[in-house]
């Protein structure tokens, strides 16, 4: 699997993502700087977490208007898989690649802890290594992960199976509507989620529940 990791000023989870992709796919991802518009030919583009542009204006708002995002939009339209984690999820929403918005956590506190996630849709290219309804462990670390969408959008994404991950067993850390932790686009090739699966992929992390997300994409690409 060929992959690319996007780098922007203020993103700080890029190294974790590069390590995870390298360990799971066996090939180091290429890195792409925010000004690049000619993207390499890859199977998966990942926007990692962090605090791009210091979260100025709104989380992900400035990053979503950088040249690289126009190129990523074109790739997504062409069917390339795109994954956004944490700030990457916020950037995908701000760029209009996914429905909804992420607001300040309802507690107003930055949350850094482990949560439980329910795999709400195990038929996506990002989740087929899991079972529907499976509960997995996953770390979260964010201040603005409170998912919001208007009633019409919410009904649409719930009806279409676009809600891929939910916070389970009372672990919703941020007040997200319907406990939503991750959503996919209608076409099924762009996924965004607040939790950090790349930080739970091997024994040294204390578990490997996050590995299945990357393994799913790897399987789809290899097939």
């Amino acid at each position: 699997m060929k992959s690319a990791v996007v780098q922007l000023p203020g993103l700080n989870r890029d190294r974790d993502m590069i390590a995870a992709l390298t360990k799971i796919s066996g090939v180091a991802p290429v890195t792409v700087w925010q000004t690049e518009t000619d993207l390499p030919d890859v199977d998966l583009i990942v926007i990692p977490g962090g605090f791009s542009y210091g979260d100025y204006l709104r989380c992900g708002a400035i990053a979503a208007r950088m040249p690289v995002m126009q190129a990523i939009k074109a790739k997504a339209e062409a069917g390339v898989k795109v994954l956004g984690v944490c700030n990457g999820f916020q950037i995908l929403l701000e760029a209009g690649l996914l429905p909804g918005a992420l607001m300040r956590n309802s507690s107003l506190k930055f949350v850094c802890r482990e949560v439980k996630l329910e795999v709400a849709n195990a038929e996506t290219d990002f989740t087929r290594a899991y079972d529907k309804g499976q509960i997995i462990r996953c770390p979260v670390a964010h201040h603005d992960g409170n998912f919001f969408a208007d009633a019409e959008t919410l009904a649409a994404i719930e009806g279409d199976g676009q809600v891929v991950f939910r916070y389970a067993e009372g672990t919703n850390p941020n007040g997200s509507l319907n406990d939503i932790a991750g959503v996919i686009n209608a076409k099924g090739n762009v996924l965004g989620l607040m939790p950090h699966p790349e930080n739970l992929i091997e024994a040294a992390h204390g578990g490997s529940d996050g590995r299945g997300l990357f393994a799913s994409v790897l399987d789809v690409i290899a097939a």
Binding site: L57, R58, G100, A101, M103, A149, D150
Partner: peptide
């Protein structure tokens, strides 16, 4: 529409 406001919210 393009930047100053997020018209979703």
């Amino acid at each position: 529409d393009k930047l100053l406001a997020n018209t979703v919210i």
